[in-house]
Design a binder for these strands. Structure first.
Length: 486
RNA sequence: GGGGUCGUGGCCUAGUUUGGUUUAUGGCACUGGCUUCGGGCGCCAGAGUCCUCAAAAGGCUGAAUGUCGUGGGUUCAAAUCCCACCGACCCCA
């Protein structure tokens, strides 16, 4: 049974002005406070930290399951470490924070705040790795990193401090390292399944690689304003960092010969993943969280009536206890607010399921179960509550994920020519086209289309291009996806 | 990197055009009370930048001084005009 509700929404529709909606929901749900007085830095408030901790937990568990071990490296890196890999330094030096003074004295050697930790971790790898028996070495850390972004900063989407996990691995040979990249992709796919987020899994074009990588792979998701957001990357580093001219990470192999390791690194962006979940699933009533991510999965609202308070509260407490025993994260809202006020509050925070218990529920032996995603109600008999929720949680997740993927897939438009692109450019969010692979072509596209970027080629499926590049008409080598990006 | 718009109590907003009658308008949120609860109801009252002083805590009262992002300037007089800085948003490269 569904009940139609014509209730004024606290937020505007996100499709009308995503930017405004996003800022508004961050404030109304008390997620981040942007008033901290340093540009590009925000305060993460409790409501979002509970979500962030769940995201970390999901990703860390997947990594640990695959044999990664946690570690924690210093936030400061000596400039001399940082300069060792020439491409790496070239890419990052313009956006690092530097410390050159402490205790009122100039430091002997300048330190940087990690923009990423290759140059902090790999010198230690060089000390730790001695034998092929030490390999593979798989280490990760959950930290914040610092980049002096010059483009406009946005809370969660692009900050000068952001949260992520970085996993760093070393192997005896190229094949093992390349397999690690595949494993990283699998981990990301599984995690994104939990998050209910759609993605494009691509290999970045050669000129668009991570600074210091041999090959770069990335996950892009799509925000409601039509721009894509890179939410995770994994890189095959080869021996770029391990060779004798850089960190010289070497081991003695079975054959007694000293060899340099092959490496990979992997970085899912936690701030951005949370931003994407907020943006993709949320609506004009606030957050909509996937069941497994939600810090609270079920909220129980007692609706008191004069003279019946005790019976109503007792039923609410019993049901709360039973749900806790069944393993759900629940909360019983016993505050003095009116029921309507509680509905708005918990809907804003995205709790997937709400159970309402009032006089009628007590008298007739049922509860009212409300789904946050559809905002619909059903009456469920007391004895069926647990079964119903077990069923409902899968259903909710399935539908949430499907809605997101449908929206995502319908945003991809295939294009055969420049003219077609210009004609459809208003509608097309993600563009699929045959491409020549030249950087000059990509630059030209970006300049002439208000920022459409070549994001790369898909790696989950093989796609055969037609013979001509859609833009320049020269020979096409592969199919790429293009989008405006954050 | 270039250009534009903007910054007023916790949040949003009126006032800026034409400097003075503003001890800054209204709403939300907040505090106390009534209301006792099926979508954030209604009514009453309060407080609402910061600091200092007097009075034994709190409350209350009174006084001086200040206040519209920060600092400086013009002026008898500045939220309002000018300059610089900081920050936000949008557009372009």
């Amino acid at each position: 049974m569904m009940i139609e509700m014509n209730i004024e929404a606290p937020l505007k529709k996100k499709k009308e002005n995503f930017s405004e909606w996003f800022d508004d929901v961050l404030q109304r749900a008390e997620l981040v406070d942007i008033r901290y007085n340093v540009k590009g830095f925000v305060v993460y408030r409790p409501n979002i930290m509970f979500i962030i901790k769940r995201v970390y937990e999901i990703l860390e568990n997947l990594l640990i399951e695959k044999g990664h071990k946690p570690a924690l490296f210093p936030i400061v890196i000596p400039v001399s470490n940082f300069r060792k890999e020439s491409e790496h330094i070239k890419g990052f030096e313009r956006e690092v924070f530097k410390i050159n003074e402490a205790g009122g004295k100039e430091l002997e050697e300048e330190l940087i705040l990690r923009p990423t930790s290759e140059t902090a971790i790999y010198p230690m790898f060089a000390l730790w790795i001695r034998s092929y028996k030490d390999l593979p070495m798989k280490i990760f850390q959950s930290v914040s990193v610092y980049r002096y972004e010059t483009k406009a900063t946005r809370p969660l989407l692009r900050g000068r401090e952001f949260l992520w996990i970085e996993a760093h691995c070393a192997f005896t040979d190229e094949e093992s390292a390349r397999n690690q990249v595949k494993e990283d992709l699998e981990i990301t796919k599984r995690a994104f399944h939990e998050f209910g987020l759609p993605f494009l899994m691509v290999e970045r074009e050669p000129y668009d690689k991570f600074f210091g990588a041999v090959d770069s792979y990335a996950f892009d998701t799509l925000l409601p304003d039509g721009r894509v957001l890179q939410v995770a990357t994994t890189h095959y580093l080869g021996q770029n960092f391990s060779n004798p001219n850089v960190f010289d990470i070497k081991f003695t192999d079975k054959d007694g010969i000293k060899k340099n390791v092959y490496q990979t690194c992997y970085g899912p962006g936690v701030s951005r993943i949370v931003a994407a979940m907020i943006s993709v699933h949320g609506d004009e009533y606030g957050l909509v969280l996937p069941f497994n991510v939600a810090p609270f999965q079920i909220v129980i609202i007692p609706i008191l009536k004069a003279g019946k308070e005790d019976a109503i509260m007792e039923k609410a407490r019993i049901i709360n206890q039973n749900l806790l025993k069944a393993g759900f994260r629940t909360i019983l809202d016993e505050s003095n607010e009116r029921p309507g006020e509680k509905y708005y509050k918990w809907e804003m925070l995205g709790v997937p399921i709400r159970i309402e218990i009032g006089d009628e529920e007590v008298g007739k032996g049922f509860v009212t179960i409300f789904r946050r995603d559809l905002r619909s109600r059903k009456k469920i008999k007391d004895e069926d509550i647990i079964d119903n929720i077990l069923n409902l949680k899968d259903l909710i997740h399935e539908e949430l994920e499907k809605r997101a993927w449908d929206e995502f897939n319908s945003s991809i438009t295939s294009i055969n020519s420049k003219e077609e692109l210009m004609r459809k450019s208003k509608k097309a969010k993600i563009v699929r086209a045959s491409f020549c692979g030249r950087k000059e072509c990509a630059d030209e596209i970006k300049a002439e289309t208000e920022g459409l970027e070549v994001r790369g080629r898909r790696i989950d499926i093989k796609e055969t291009p037609s013979d001509k590049c859609f833009w320049c008409g020269k020979k096409a080598t592969h199919i790429v996806y293009l989008a405006k990006a954050y």
